[in-house]
Amino acid sequence: MKKDLVVIGAGPAGLAAAISAYEEGIRDILIVERDNLLGGILNQCIHPGFGLFTFGEELTGPEYAARYIAKVKELGIEYMLDTMVMDITRDKVVTLSSGLKLEAGAIILAMGCRERPRGALNISGTRPSGIFTAGTAQRLMNIEGYMPGKEVVILGSGDIGLIMARRMTLEGAKVKMVVEIKEKSGGLARNIAQCLDDFNIPLLLNTTVTKIHGKDRVTGVTLSTGEYVSCDTILLSVGLIPENELSKKCGVRLEEGSNNIICSEDLMTDVDGVFCSGNVHHVHDLVDNVTKEAIKAGKSAAIYLRR
């Protein structure tokens, strides 16, 4: 089967890129999404703060996504849910988890990023339950409706960790502290003010977790200061990694260390006709910036297809 444009991922980047390509005159578009709904991670980001630049108003994640989902549906852009891309070749043959093979005229990579897990930090200690990445905890609370913990230490001060400090506090959990190995938080200033300061949650800089305790469930952590802190839950907010395993399969060149995609000004990767946008390219602070980049990627793909 042939498709002019295959967009991989239906988060904010994929949706905006597909809409942008459509508006540039491309009609034969397919968005492939591995989850069972459109919108990506925005669906679990129920806090406000999205859309100030794009729409001039403050929206929640699901509200922000809903505008793009509605547009995709209105334009009749084709999409597949519960479908994962298993392979992309250099000549742009896309293999789906259903076994279907698509010959794409152009591809936009929009797979987003993943969170760095505990294993990657190589923190010593036991391996009990109660250790979550901040995003997993966010999904547990906001999509599934379950409490992942009662007494929490957050390692790393990335934005999702800060947002979750507030979210868990509002749900009745005791967030004891956020510890950050660097001398400065990587999170947005507004999140430190609104998510930590407003709730009197201490942020310990130049500090990290050196050991995890607990045989069945987490019972506590040892900090680099030597202090032991009891807790039943550890949330990790220690960095995001562009999810480029698929990109590598077709020969897209990555920056060593960061896993960012090396691409041209118009967002074309080293592979002819393969473009990228959003957090798979590099991790963005704001979804508004993701949208901006995705619009450009959609446009570039359209120009490429028309040439």
Partner: peptide
């Protein structure tokens, strides 16, 4: 997670 006491979630949110 593995043992009987390796609880993963503590009931519903509010």
């Amino acid at each position: 997670k593995n043992t009987l006491d390796s609880v993963i979630v503590f009931g519903k949110t509010k």
